[in-house]
Design a protein around this nucleic acid. Structure first.
Lengths: 240, 240
DNA sequence: CGCGTTTTTGAAGCCCCTCAAGTGTAGTGG
DNA sequence: CCACTACACTTGAGGGGCTTCAAAAACGCG
């Protein structure tokens, strides 16, 4: 079985066996990281490239008064900041949410290698563009969707992403995010997240409890969210 | 005098005279576009690369009910979507705000050319990373800043960006954005934008009127915004 | 000069926040 | 086995920020 990262990249463009072997070797360097552990902090020099093997992480920024805004949720297969070394310092932090396995890839070696692997470069660039589209979709949610729509929209996104790496079975998947984390991601308070989840549960749309999301009605969920899957470049419903 | 685009890229890394000549030739193909004109729409196949020469534009997404969320404001020197052709279709639209001069660069030729101009590739990548940091900063604003902070923060960002392309003189610059456009960018109603601008005016922080922003007190403005310029990788105050 | 757009202001209401308290759950050590 | 702790979840009450609706004033362009 290949790692989620290799699967994901292969989905963005055909890779040669040599490319895949190189990636597998890269990913084999993974180490365990405890939950709630900063991998890198805002202001630090860009360090190694992180690739999520197992578990969840997030990018975030802290505000002066102490509140936190998460700008991206990372699940297995996600990686970060190709070529970030061009920038002098990190403009955000990255931390694990759950305990995780993370590959730390020396930046220089990796960046040199992909220059001689054009298919890999294309796949990585493709991934970068999808991530950027995801950032835009988050801005739209924060700006123009109310709390119920916003939660529903995030769940749709996570559902599609989780499914694409084989984490969904029977319309359910592990989603070990506390209501505080969801609040930090969506710009809401944990208290309000709780009320929104209750409403979605009572209207038989979805239920999130004990770290597991069960989607009762994906069509209704997508309708509530006003979810359009085009930005992920993966379909919510597979073509008929 | 060079174009803002060339200036901007040169700021991200040293370019050879040949690189600069190539860019100037590319930019020379600019054409005039009227205000409020879509350059490309969500769902379209990625077309040419757009480079802003003069005037303002924005990326935006439309929601089912008809509201609009702007995800990026583009000023002279900004360009969009290098390698977007990897994606099958656009996940957002791009439109002019004012009348503008826009260079439309054939994608294939440009992408081929930068492969043999490594310095240019690096500069473009750097620009891409800064744009991504800007998206993250917008998410933070939408999630965790109230309306006054949010307006102040956007003004700080636009001030730094405008200054870096030489548009600011005497703490003022042309900012031809209607209150409706600002609302669409910040996730607020035009009515509320109006009240926020009044408050900022009455507290002698800044005044936006007749398409021109006058910053009365940049220090106070940055304090109100909780503005940290690190994501733009340009300083609000130049080093002493 | 006239008309459409933008700006401005008021009044009422709702969504989400803040504050507060209580329940449930998992892990720790007596 | 049961306190004890820490943390997440849940629920209620009250308040404030922003929205909605409405209309008038100012601006800008033909």
């Amino acid at each position: 079985m290949q790692s989620a990262f290799v699967d994901k990249l292969a989905g963005y463009g055909p890779l040669s066996p040599a490319d895949i072997a190189f990636l597998e070797a890269t990913v084999a360097t993974a180490r365990d990281v405890p939950a709630r552990h900063d991998l890198i902090r805002e202001g630090d020099e860009p360090g190694p490239l992180f690739i999520m093997i197992e578990g969840w992480a997030c990018r975030y920024k802290l505000l002066p008064e102490g509140s936190r805004q998460i700008t991206a949720l990372m699940m297995p297969g996600d990686c970060c900041d190709l070529y970030a070394s061009l920038l002098g310092e990190m403009d955000h932090s990255i931390a694990t949410i759950t305990s995780a396995r993370v590959a730390s890839v020396p930046r220089a070696a990796f960046e040199a290698e992909i220059l001689v692997r054009p298919a890999l470069l294309r796949a990585l660039w493709h991934m970068q563009l999808v991530d950027e589209g995801t950032l835009r979709a988050w801005i739209v949610s924060m700006g123009r969707r109310d709390s119920v729509e916003r939660v529903a929209h995030l769940m749709c996104e996570l559902y599609v992403r989780a499914r694409s790496i084989g984490l969904v079975s029977d319309q359910r998947f592990e989603l070990p995010l506390t209501q505080t984390v969801l609040g930090d991601a969506l710009g809401l308070t944990p208290v309000h997240i709780n009320r929104v989840l209750r409403r979605l549960r009572l209207s038989d749309v979805m239920e999130l409890s004990h770290g597991s999301l069960v989607i009762a009605d994906i069509t209704k969920l997508a309708a509530v969210a006003g979810f359009d899957d085009n930005y992920l470049h993966r379909r919510l419903r597979r073509a008929a």
